Amino acid sequence: MLVFEPNRRVTVDDALCHPYLAPLHDISEEPVCPRPFVFDFEQLSFTEENIKELIWWESVKFNPDPTH
């Protein structure tokens, strides 16, 4: 699994059949996803101002101003 080229990596099915994982492998508890996951939410484009605002809101969570 630690191969840079995705096409050369072991598949999930092959990994689950590997002797190292054999004690943990239980086909009845391993459902198969019918389609690939979509991670589009991780592909957001931020402007510099968006990033500044997100950082500000994150800091407010940890350091709230009691006067507001």
Rank of each mutant, 00 (worst) to 15 (best):
Asp26Val: 07
Met1Ala: 15
Asp65Leu: 01
Cys33Trp: 09
Ala22Gln: 15
Pro66Lys: 06
Ala22Leu: 12
Pro31Lys: 09
Val3Asn: 02
Asn7Met: 03
Glu30Met: 14
Pro6Ala: 06
Cys33Glu: 14
Cys17Pro: 00
Asp26Lys: 06
Thr47Cys: 04
Ile51Arg: 10
Leu44Lys: 13
Val32Cys: 14
Pro36Phe: 06
Ala15Val: 03
Phe41Met: 11
Pro6Gly: 07
Glu48Phe: 08
Val12Pro: 00
Phe4Ala: 12
Leu16Trp: 11
Ser59Met: 07
Tyr20Val: 14
Leu44Ser: 14
Glu29Asp: 14
Phe37Leu: 14
Asn7Lys: 04
Glu49Trp: 00
Asn50Ala: 09
Gln43Ser: 13
Asn63Phe: 05
Phe62Ile: 05
His18Gly: 03
Thr67Ile: 04
Trp57Ile: 06
Asp14Arg: 08
Val10Arg: 02
Phe37Thr: 09
Cys33Lys: 11
Arg8Lys: 14
Leu24Thr: 14
Val10Tyr: 00
Ser45His: 10
Arg35Val: 12
Ile27Asn: 04
Leu21His: 04
Ser59Arg: 10
Gln43Gly: 11
Pro6Glu: 08
Ile55Val: 15
His25Ala: 05
Pro23Asn: 07
Val60Phe: 00
Arg35Asp: 12
Asn63Met: 01
His18Gln: 07
Asp13Gly: 08
Thr11Lys: 01
His25Glu: 04
Ala22Pro: 02
Pro64Phe: 05
His25Gln: 08
Glu30Gln: 14
Glu42Lys: 03
Pro19Asp: 12
Trp56Glu: 10
Asp26Tyr: 05
